[in-house]
Amino acid sequence: MEHIEIVQGYLFGDVKFLDFLVVLIFLDIFFGVIKAWKKKKLRSRTAWFGYVRKIGVFGIIIAANIIDTILGLNGTVAFGTVLFYIGNEILSITENCAELGIKIPSIVTDKLQVIQKEDKEKKGDKNE
């Protein structure tokens, strides 16, 4: 157990809320799989790429920790990176729950619709 703590300290430093991010990632995977199963769109290849992206998040956090260490920023970049991904995971979990029919407050679903509309518009601009 001591070796794990040494490796975690070396790779991630003292990044706060990393454990919370891990829990959110597992919840997002859980609700994402349930949503895909319900919509009959559960595909191993799609799931595989999703898992790889989740692992990539930790790679980015490690890189942020290295930047903090080199520049002597006391974890500022890594902490900001973790907060960004926490927000991203909460958004994804909320979207998955809404698509599963779990009641979400209207103020939240209204914001999600605005975000989804903006994302579609950005993707439309790229295709032109």
Rank of each mutant, 00 (worst) to 15 (best):
R53S: 12
V82T: 13
K41Y: 12
K38S: 10
F20T: 14
W48C: 10
A64S: 11
I34F: 14
V33Y: 07
G59S: 05
L71S: 06
G59P: 04
G87K: 08
V15E: 07
G56C: 04
F17A: 05
F31V: 14
I86M: 14
K54N: 15
N96V: 00
K111F: 12
K103W: 12
I104H: 00
L24E: 10
E89A: 10
A78D: 01
A64E: 00
G87H: 07
S44Q: 08
C97T: 06
K111I: 13
L112K: 08
I6G: 03
D68Q: 02
I60S: 04
T76S: 08
I93R: 00
A36S: 15
G72P: 00
K38Q: 13
L21N: 02
Q113G: 04
D28M: 01
I66P: 00
G13I: 05
L21Y: 02
W37C: 15
I6R: 12
T76C: 02
I107A: 14
S92T: 09
G13V: 02
S106C: 07
N96F: 00
A64Y: 06
T81M: 13
T46E: 14
N96P: 00
K35S: 09
F20G: 09
F20S: 10
E5L: 10
I93H: 00
K40L: 11
G13S: 02
G50K: 12
E99I: 11
N96C: 01
A78K: 02
